[in-house]
Amino acid sequence: MAPFLLPFVVFVLWPIIAAILSSFQRVGYISRTWVGLANYAAVLTDNISLQAFWNTGVLVVWVVPLETILSLAIAVVVVRLSRRWQSYFRVAFYVPVVASSVILSLIWLWLLNPVYGLFDQFLGIFGVAHVDWLGQVNTALYAVMFVLLSTSLGIPIIVFIAGLNAVPREVLEAAKIDGATWPNELRYVSLPLMRPVIGFILVVTTIGTSQVFAVVELLTKGGPASSTETVVYQIWERAFALNDLGFASALSVLLLLITLVAAVVQVRTLGRVRYD
């Protein structure tokens, strides 16, 4: 136990507690002073931070359902196929996850370029004129969202395929004998059994999406005009560019609270995630 517990306490548990403590303090590298709720007051009256929470919320509200529904739809089709095709699809959709969001962001920086980016030229075929997706206030957040979706379907698809394959054969046979069609089988048999798995994926994707950083740092740096500013990007800017560690800690604690509440709500509504 000890080789785990010591680093666990120092590098995992303590930082969580320290984040909460620092959010009530003015934090320097040497000294700390208690300032009560001043950091929170500062966060909640700061326009950029509020914008960051709003943007992160918009991302979660769009990306989490889209990601879940898309990957569930793909998984539902893939489990009907032969073993060989199943493993092709599992690999194909997981490869971008292996590549990491840093590498994919770099590629999208090129693909989304308004002059020679392939994405723009593709849309040009349909008569859409050059659009600077990442450079305009009203499109940048949607471009970020698109890039996120293009990198993150892998894990939910793998999990859903495994979940659907774990539905007992006898249950499916019984449904078939009772004359169930494929949509009926999905609606009344497979998907109800998948509720805990869907709940798990909702929680995981919510936590993942609310933590967006690499895509923003590499594609937009929060701009233009804060339109892609996210909470984690703000934490990074406040703490390490502006040196306001207390303010950034308050942001962190608010992010933690919101994600935990979202996780609890999702798990409660969709059934418990079972751990053993």
Partner: peptide, 23 residues
């Protein structure tokens, strides 16, 4: 301890970046 381990899995790693840096 196991409960603690599970709970920390739910904590976004960005939350602890600042205190970790101070450590």
């Amino acid at each position: 301890i196991f409960g603690g381990v599970l709970l920390t899995m739910l904590v976004p790693s960005a939350v602890t970046v600042i205190p970790l840096f101070l450590v």
